[in-house]
């Protein structure tokens, strides 16, 4: 351990924690954590003004290793805790890291209502298509026909398209990328942190040890190559014939618009009511 490097990423890690980290060999969570750290470092944000919140799951182990203000909360309730932090300290940048099962199954309500409210949270949703930590049960994003330990004959449920769900709920910044496209991911994380309003980035990640093995996807390099060969930028979709687009992962910023932000609207409300004493405005 004598020659731990002092590159950008390593300056943001907690070296009192046990390394190598807990994730399996080839798991994309480390790549995503690296991209988050590079985004934060290149923006030169004050670490005291940043907080990372997570729920329970493989990807939700990230706050253990990153040296920021961190909160490791209940299963599915990461966005609920993050909303509380943002309401109390509106100037803080809040990054929420959750998994697909954490955020769309157990915490599905919190996701859609945070999107509807347009509160300034930056949700990085790590989608590995399975519940990895508990042994490979099928999650809401396990594709139709894929195998899981609770679907040994193939999954018979259609899967969620998380980006469409959040777009429908009214989020103002929605992007999708994969763990292979690291530079793109870093740019989107920067854009999301700068964006005033609810922003969600869906990052498709590789789970080679559980999902990959059950579905004969090969090892980690094969799964990463699949992301590379099987995805299209959103700008190319209109120019290609429909048969080439079908079945591909569409990467890119799917929506970016400025809408009234919840904390700002709440501060407005407070100042407005304080001036009038609340006598003329209330219509009860």
């Amino acid at each position: 351990m004598a020659n731990i490097p002092q590159k950008v990423v390593h300056q943001y890690l907690r070296h009192d924690k046990k390394f190598p980290h807990v994730w399996c060999a080839g798991c994309s969570n480390g790549i995503i954590l690296g991209a988050i750290i590079r985004a934060i470092a290149s923006m030169e944000l004050d670490r005291d003004n940043l907080v990372m919140v997570s729920g329970i799951g493989c990807s939700s182990r990230m706050p253990v290793y990153i040296d920021l203000n961190t909160l490791h909360t209940l299963h599915g309730r990461a966005i609920a805790f993050a909303t509380g932090i943002k309401m109390h300290k509106p100037k803080m940048k809040v990054i929420v890291v959750t998994g697909d099962g954490d955020c769309t199954a157990i915490g599905g309500n919190h996701l859609i209502h945070a999107a509807r409210r347009n509160i300034d949270l930056n949700v990085i949703l790590v989608n590995n298509n399975i519940y990895g930590m508990t042994g490979g049960q099928c999650s809401p994003t396990t594709p139709y026909g894929a195998f899981a330990t609770t679907a040994p004959y193939g999954n018979i449920e259609p899967d969620f398209d998380i980006c469409n769900l959040v777009l429908g709920a009214g989020a103002s910044f929605v992007a999708r990328t994969t763990a292979f496209h690291v530079v793109e991911m870093q740019n989107y994380i920067q854009a999301a942190i700068e964006h005033p309003g609810f922003s969600m980035i869906e990052v498709l990640s590789a789970c080679p040890v559980i999902y990959g093995r059950l579905n004969k996807k090969g090892g980690a390099p094969q799964m990463m190559k699949e992301f590379r060969d099987n995805s299209l930028p959103v700008t190319a979709v209109d120019k290609l014939p429909p048969d080439q687009v079908e079945g591909k992962i569409i990467r890119g910023i799917l929506r970016k618009e400025i809408r009234p932000e919840y904390c700002a609207a709440y501060a407005d409300l407070v100042s407005r009511v304080q001036v009038t004493g609340g006598k003329n405005d209330a219509k009860i």
Binding site: M1, I4, P5, C24, A25, G26, P208, G219, A220, P221
Partner: peptide, 23 residues
């Protein structure tokens, strides 16, 4: 040798997943 190498590898942390070699 480590001082001449353009790439530094920390074998204590490596889990041998093969991604770096593949890409």
């Amino acid at each position: 040798a480590e001082k001449d190498s353009p790439v530094l590898i920390y074998y204590n942390w490596c889990k041998k997943c093969g991604i770096c070699v593949a890409f």
